[in-house]
Design a protein around this nucleic acid. Structure first.
Lengths: 139, 139
DNA sequence: ATCCCAAATAGAAATTGTTTCTATTTGCTT
DNA sequence: AAGCAAATAGAAACAATTTCTATTTGGGAT
């Protein structure tokens, strides 16, 4: 299950440490965007010694390797989520504001435009907020 | 020039203080997204006593009044920009990554969809990054 | 024009998410 | 099994933002 992600690390000659594997498994066990502190608290049970800086370092590393995507939430905390898009195709995220569940979707012709108002378009960031089906049933 | 914005404050019974007027004028004098510190430094010349918390408080207030829009930049600082859309119509922003200049644009049918992947869409945030025409000429 | 009070403010201090630093440990190649 | 660069813990530093309290002020009422 986690091989795809671990391979991405090895491809780039990063070491497969128990902590790194645990972080990836932690993401796999949820379908959520998670922030460093949540992960830290979740894994402290497993590792008697676990530093928060390690979590930060690895999340940033994973983000660079295409394993995680980073997102700035309105509460000013960093969040990361597993990138499930198979082929690194450009995609967007929809986040449930109740439970934090994350879906991915594609908008094919979102910005074919090369320029907008005289600006040369370099990239864009689209985040959609909504309520997932599970949370809708609950309320 | 600044009357439109000052009116928005008065409409809601907020006081027109010299600091508030100066902050709005400061935005008008630039076409930029600005962060609290920049504004603070820019206005300290004018006001011998000027607290950074006042800037934060007013930017947040202006944001709620529809005078400014708030944006989370990747550097983890808050930025605000004047909302030039006449009628509070839903719009998006394009930011120059060189100089910070901001343009506004509309995508009419960006999300007519009411649901995506089972998520009920509540709102979306689209930020486009690019290089403005002035900065393109320079480089 | 003056009084008055809620709103606005300054300044200091607290808070908190994130990063840096240094000594120690550990994966992985040989 | 040895050695070394990479990874890590833990403490400390950092920086953006918020909170708190005493003081000041805008603007309606008099």
């Amino acid at each position: 299950m986690n091989e795809i992600y671990l391979n991405k690390l090895q491809e780039k000659n990063f070491k497969l440490t128990p902590r790194r594997i645990a972080i990836i498994d932690f993401f796999l066990s949820r379908e959520r965007y998670l922030n460093p502190e949540i992960i830290w608290k979740g894994l402290k049970k497993k590792f008697k010694h676990l530093g928060l800086p390690s979590i930060y370092r690895n999340l940033e590393l994973f983000s660079k390797c295409g394993i995680l995507t980073k997102i700035q939430m309105p509460n000013r905390k960093l969040y990361y989520g597993l990138c499930k898009a198979k082929d690194n195709k450009h995609h967007h995220h929809i986040v449930c504001i109740k439970c934090g569940k994350v879906g991915e979707f594609f908008e094919e012709n979102l910005f074919e435009k090369k320029t907008i108002n005289g600006f040369k378009v370099l990239n864009h960031f689209l985040q959609v907020e909504g309520i997932c089906s599970t949370c809708r049933i609950k309320s």
